[in-house]
Write a protein that binds this DNA or RNA. Structure first.
Lengths: 215, 215, 215, 215
DNA sequence: AATGAATGAGCCTTCATTCAT
DNA sequence: GATGAATGAAGGCTCATTCAT
């Protein structure tokens, strides 16, 4: 499990090619031949550098997450002096960009969507390093919006409501493309989408705050 | 494309085995031999009854949706004399049951999640017969909750917010199981979840209604 | 080994379909399903009536030869009061018609060509009943044209020279169609072809007769 | 389409085994497994070296023709200072050797006979490289023997008469073996056969020349 | 007698992996 | 260290055949 970007150019090319091919075809349908062809390396390189297709897949997953986190770091949201509402709004926007930005990050979101839908042993590592921190952050921010008296389970459900709205655009993009393609067609639409999700969620949270916990 | 439950016992066993194996391993990783072994039929039966692995997969998908629709019919929600709020609440509950009820429906939700994440040519048929009607129904119900002045695109986003919260529990179950398993562990928890999503969504919609369209 | 045309209509249809399909695709590439479909009978009929694909093939071969001999009987040539030259000319014409007449006999010639190129156990029977008599007839006619002093082997070579010219148009039709299609294109061309072969052969035999045996 | 005899021993063994097995069983009945077993290579080698059974078959055909042309080159007949009669005689002998020499060329003649009787897409290539040149050569030689006044079609028929006599011994060998095996039994007999065909053909052509064109 | 459903052996091909260089 | 040739296991599918009716 070496660093995503070491000094070996062949290894790096292999990794980037793997992210793309795995994202496009899935783990099983992707062939090491195709990956090596795209990376312009020998077909035996996968075993040489990574020790097998599966290992390469796990590394690709970490590489994709690391790339995404580097481009859209969570710290930007946390380290700023924002109100809770602004913080949540900023998080949603950044999270959505991370999920939907296909241009600068390659098709990493498809890769992640696949892994979540059809987890491998690599998922645990991904959750620990990339997903759990996001949950933790929201778990810190939400009480300020919800007021007191809410159980952890209540807060988790709210987190899932927020994340679910965002992930909808990634996991179910195939359905959206077919049923209402206008909401996802252009990259600029991402901003509108994040505004909607922020408004929707803040509206709900505010009302929850006023009504108080029903538990 | 015969009826999901015809009089042919071998065909039916094959279909049910296929739903299970495809759900567990995905289309590519599932082998015809395994499916036939589970159904206790001849390895050539898949070609005999369905004309190939791909055709069997498409039928399995339709079968899974048909089974779910039969157990939790959409008509129950529409044909009743309910207020818009009650109608949405009922829809959410039923939709969630349809997605999460693994006890009486087998592992069909994994099958559906896979197909949406990694669509095949069968998705179009599924959308037309099973998904589009649900969108249409929500598109009729929401205006009563949102008030006037909202564009179709606004309404679609609200629909996606609602469905996204529900689908979160299906698509990202692997993450939920690891990060906050308590919200999904027991079947009875499904009711609590649906209540949460209904409350969350209705709260947001009410506030949208009060604030009016910002377009 | 029943008569080619017995009273069972299913059996007859099967036989005729088999001749056509076997002729078109060869023994191995022809499927019993296709044959049964063309004959509009049950797929199990081949085994029921003939006891297997191979047996059906053997019967088809006999059927095709019988059909050809019925349409162009050898007796017509022998029983007439013709000179040796006229007899040979008539034989060549009839033989060529038998080989090339695809219209009234179905594609039986292709079937025969295949069997000769790639003999099965059925060939011995075919030779005994259909081919040997033709050799015998020529063996009787040729001495009148060649004069005396020729060994059996010499006569056989002349027979083979005559038959070879005729069979060229059957066995190598694929080549003729590509290299010089004009000599085989129309049915009327068959007459010209038979005239050529008769002239060519008689010219050679006459000269052989003048020169005498060189053995 | 690499050279018939390159430096790869496995590839060459595979090709020679393929010629033999395809000749013996035909394209469809020959199994890749059998070919690989005979060549003592891995069952996957056919796809590795040739890209599939069909491609291997096409290469085998070219290989067989190339082998035959190398052993009995057409150039030997053309480049020599022979009279037209000697030229035709030499051609017939060489052609016949090419067709019947099973001792030094393997069973390639059966392979060729099959392909001509039951052509695949490979035939066009074979005709262009191996068969058309022979036609062209005869088309140049025959006018010197026939005299003037003959149409192309007349000349083609004479060519077919000559080739037909030769090919008889290849295509119909199964019949000859059963009806008059003495004319083909021994390799030395090939010389006698070629002398017969040359005599027969030259006699006919001479007479045609004297009589003149009847067109 | 005659059928239609069902079978199982076998084929070609793909692909991740390894081994000698 | 890194490669390219070669492997063998396994998968989907076809098809002649059989069995219960």
């Amino acid at each position: 499990m070496s660093a995503p970007s070491c000094n070996d150019p062949s290894r790096d090319r292999l990794l980037m090619a793997a992210v793309e091919i795995f994202a496009e075809h899935g783990f099983r349908d992707a062939t090491v031949r195709d990956i090596c062809a795209k990376a312009e390396v020998n077909p035996a390189s996968v075993n040489y550098y990574f020790g097998g297709k599966e290992k390469l897949y796990a590394e690709s997953l970490h590489f994709a997450f690391a790339q995404a986190d580097q481009r859209y770091p969570l710290g930007d949201v946390l380290n700023s002096n924002l109100s809770a509402e602004q913080c949540l709004t900023a998080f949603i926007q950044q999270f959505l960009y991370k999920l939907l930005d296909d241009t600068s990050l390659g098709h990493h979101s498809k890769l992640i969507a696949r892994e979540i839908t059809d987890p491998t042993s690599a998922l645990d590592g991904i959750i620990a390093t990339a997903i759990a921190p996001q949950f933790a952050m929201l778990k810190e921010v939400l009480p300020a919006l919800l007021g007191s008296g809410w159980s952890d389970k209540d807060i988790y459900r709210c987190i899932l409501s927020i994340l679910g709205q965002c992930l909808m655009y990634m996991h179910s993009r195939s359905v959206i493309d077919r049923v209402c393609p206008e909401v996802i067609a252009t990259p600029e639409e991402i901003n509108r989408t994040s505004e909607h999700i922020a408004s929707f969620s803040l509206a709900a949270l505010r009302q929850f705050n006023q009504e108080g916990s029903q538990a």
